[in-house]
């Protein structure tokens, strides 16, 4: 299933190897402008390798990664600059835009994440996990991205905190048309939040489709949602409907429009 909007991230036949070990084997996926897309998979599936390839941190052995516009990362485990203040962490998020007027103005992040205002001068390493995840969000927003890659939103966080952060993501997506690639082990969270998704296992895309289709798939439900097999096979086009827990799920934000024109496109090839 492909998005009906122009892709901001396009990964095609991507192969990533570390020595003789193949971490990603001909992986293809797209994220359309303003879309919320989930990538679920177990530990060792290759999720982090995919993140690193999209961010240009690892070089693919073959295939392509094409990013139209700016991409920012909310990394797994928050990855704070622990000795620096919250303010400094946020400012460094604008490193790619340094030199532009107002690039380091953090006030726009405090408007979106007002919870951070009172800890702005505190060392980031001393914050709680939820606060650090917010700083990681804010730091990504400082890049004024067209798409944000969120690596393990829920890792190590209480369900209440995760729900609050998911709400922030949803409102950023709805309000700013920010495209999101949400990479999660918690498939229920990811499929509830996103309109479309992929399942990555052992370095390969095993299933893809709308969040509903994936949630209803016997394989996905059994492996990731802890529930019994239900109906459809993933990969086809099914109707929007209810989630595996019975909650009404939102449609893919594929029809949204991305912010501004692409300002820093990137294409990586081996």
């Amino acid at each position: 299933m492909t998005p009906v909007v122009p892709p901001v991230v396009e990964v095609g036949d991507l192969v990533v190897r570390y020595g003789t070990a193949t971490a990603l084997d001909r992986v293809s996926l797209t994220v359309g402008a303003g879309e919320l897309v989930a990538l679920v998979g177990p530990n060792g599936a290759g999720k982090s390798s995919l993140v690193n390839a999209i961010m240009g941190i690892v070089r693919p052995a073959s295939g392509r990664v094409r990013v139209s516009g700016r991409v920012a990362l909310v990394p797994e485990g928050r990855q704070m600059f622990g000795d620096l203040s919250v303010d400094d962490n946020l400012r460094l998020g604008a490193w790619r835009r340094r030199g532009r007027p107002g690039a380091r103005d953090t006030s726009r992040v405090y408007e979106v994440l007002p919870e951070l205002t009172r800890v702005r001068h505190q060392r980031a390493g001393t914050l709680s996990g939820g606060q650090q995840q917010m700083v990681a969000f804010g730091r990504a927003l400082m890049a004024e991205p067209d798409v944000v890659v969120v690596d393990e939103l829920s890792l190590g966080l209480a369900p209440m905190v995760t729900a609050g952060l998911a709400e922030h993501l949803r409102s950023l997506n709805a309000g700013r048309g920010l495209a999101v690639l949400l990479i999660e082990q918690n498939a229920r969270l990811a499929l509830d939040l996103c309109g479309r998704g992929y399942v990555l296992e052992a370095g390969r895309i095993r299933a893809q489709g709308s969040a509903d289709e994936l949630a209803r798939s016997a394989e996905v439900a059994a492996a990731y949602l802890g529930g019994p097999a239900t109906t459809a096979e993933p990969g086809g086009s099914g109707p929007e409907g209810t989630g595996p827990d019975g909650t009404k799920r939102g449609a893919a934000k594929g029809g949204g429009t991305g912010p501004g024109g692409a300002v820093s496109g990137r294409e990586a090839r081996p």
């Binding site: 941190i57 920012a72 990394p75 704070m80 600059f81 620096l84 400012r91 460094l92 490193w95």
Partner: peptide
């Protein structure tokens, strides 16, 4: 200074530094 903070960021967390484009 901003470049000084970026140097400190590399020392503090090289992965996160790469992620923000340093």
């Amino acid at each position: 200074s901003y470049p000084g903070k970026a140097l400190s960021a590399c020392a503090s967390n090289p992965y996160a530094a790469r992620a923000v484009g340093i």
